[in-house]
Design a binder for these strands. Structure first.
Lengths: 254, 254
DNA sequence: CTTTTTTATAGTCACTCTGACTATAAAGGG
DNA sequence: CCCTTTATAGTCAGAGTGACTATAAAAAAG
């Protein structure tokens, strides 16, 4: 940056911006994709739901700010928040995206296993999970951010090992498949899914010991934990949708 | 953003940041990947090379700023700049990335066909193409940005139709293959490459008329232009490198 | 003008991967 | 004890891929 650097270099000669982070926090519960939203307590968009987020502190990176805000909104311990998958999505810079002032926002996507209801700790008076499809019109440009985040997550499931971030430490292949089916909105063939996951090196590793027994019906499933790989070879391509879905990875800025 | 919104909402109560865009502008010339760099005229990093870029104007989006800066640095007409492929990479927010002040930078990658030397118009006194592998230590965190940009471009060639952005309006399959080989740093089998490109729907369309005749040696190649597709089905996966290359898509923020 | 060289394009073939499907195993419920 | 449910194993045809060979169309060499 700053290539055509100014002479005296007075910081106030350049337009100051407020910088925030916005978080699209996803989980899969009851076979549906959920997103964490908070209700706004004041204008603008008072009473509307919004993605959690907040301002960067003066000496804080956006990654740090995202983890801090996430801990505040969810009440998760810093150990949990420090370990979870957090991915920078893109930055939204439309000049009118906040009616009060010029704000650029660095958006993140975070993936969580199914957890108990968030404790509305910190400043978020009311935070709760919403089914992603039912997330009404949100404040600011958060509908756009949410849609971009869903697209990105869906795409990354294909060629990364991201899906395990939705699962608890130990999980069955059925649970992992449920993640794919929920995010993609398709049904997958179980033996084929199994074959592909197990043939991808280091995607999952079997965990010894007896299978977990919840009040489930059929044959108990073997447990796995996430492997060391981060990329998926070969990729797990989602079946082509009959209705042409434009990939929507391109173009818009606000 | 701004969920825990303040009461009186004084903009100066929140840390102001300067916001810039940085551009990693790539082209393929003589079978090598090149990147556009500018030499810094003042401190810090005086005399070092850097990615072109600059500050956002008060009512300008980052996309607009990127196109404006690109036009200024390259001397390209607004029509050309308006049409080229510009992709937001990620935003760099390390608190110490600029020693003078707090600057967050939205990084973009841009792809150009091989063009004559940039006219150092605008404020960039000296802008020139550097071979990407020979781009020495750059100013600020631009080495990181450049490396991230190369990773991203290489990955996107696999599953998008991005490669045509490196080619002129009409190109041969050999030229398109050269783009893949240069960016990936591998050699590809020509008949197989041809088969895959032509079988991908709407990746390229043949252009009628006589083949272009430069002083080339062998049988003249048919010309194609970019098709309507933006995504590539099936993807054109790069051959697995013998030396394990970590995908480097994850993690670092500055 | 013929031959050689060079590049583009067509075609082959074995192997792998994939999707669709069937079969068996291990649990719980009646 | 049989039936239902879920997990896991296996099968098979077709698509896709990598490695390779063959032919076509140009320019350069002789």
């Amino acid at each position: 940056m700053t290539t055509p650097a100014p002479e005296g270099y007075d910081p106030h000669a350049y337009a100051p911006f407020a910088v925030t982070v916005d978080l699209a926090v996803f989980t899969v519960r009851e076979a549906r994709l959920h997103v964490l939203l908070v209700e706004r307590g004041q204008e603008p968009f008072r009473g509307r739901w919004a993605l959690p987020g907040g301002f960067l502190l003066p000496r804080e990176s956006a990654d740090d700010a995202a983890r801090r805000e996430l801990a505040e909104e969810t009440g998760l311990g810093p150990d949990t928040v420090g370990a979870l998958h957090l991915e920078q999505l893109r930055t939204y810079t439309g000049p009118d995206r906040d009616p009060r002032m010029r704000v650029v926002s660095v958006a993140y996507a975070a993936l969580l296993p199914d957890l108990p209801e968030p404790r509305g700790g910190g400043d978020a008076a009311s935070a709760r999970w919403w089914e992603a499809d039912a997330a009404g019109p949100l404040a600011f440009d958060h509908d756009t951010i949410l849609a971009d985040a869903r697209d990105r997550i869906g795409a990354k499931l294909e060629y990364s090992c991201l899906a395990t971030a939705f699962c608890p430490a130990e999980f069955t292949l059925g649970e992992l498949q449920q993640v794919y089916e929920t995010v993609w909105g398709v049904e997958l063939d179980r033996p084929n899914f199994r074959r592909k996951v197990l043939s991808a090196p280091d995607f999952v590793q079997p965990v010894g010991g007896p299978p977990r027994r919840t009040g489930a019906r059929g044959k108990p499933a073997a447990l796995y934990r996430a492997g060391d790989a981060t990329a998926l070879h070969p990729p797990l391509l989602r079946p082509p949708r009959t209705d042409a879905t434009p990939s929507a990875t391109e173009g818009h800025d606000r």
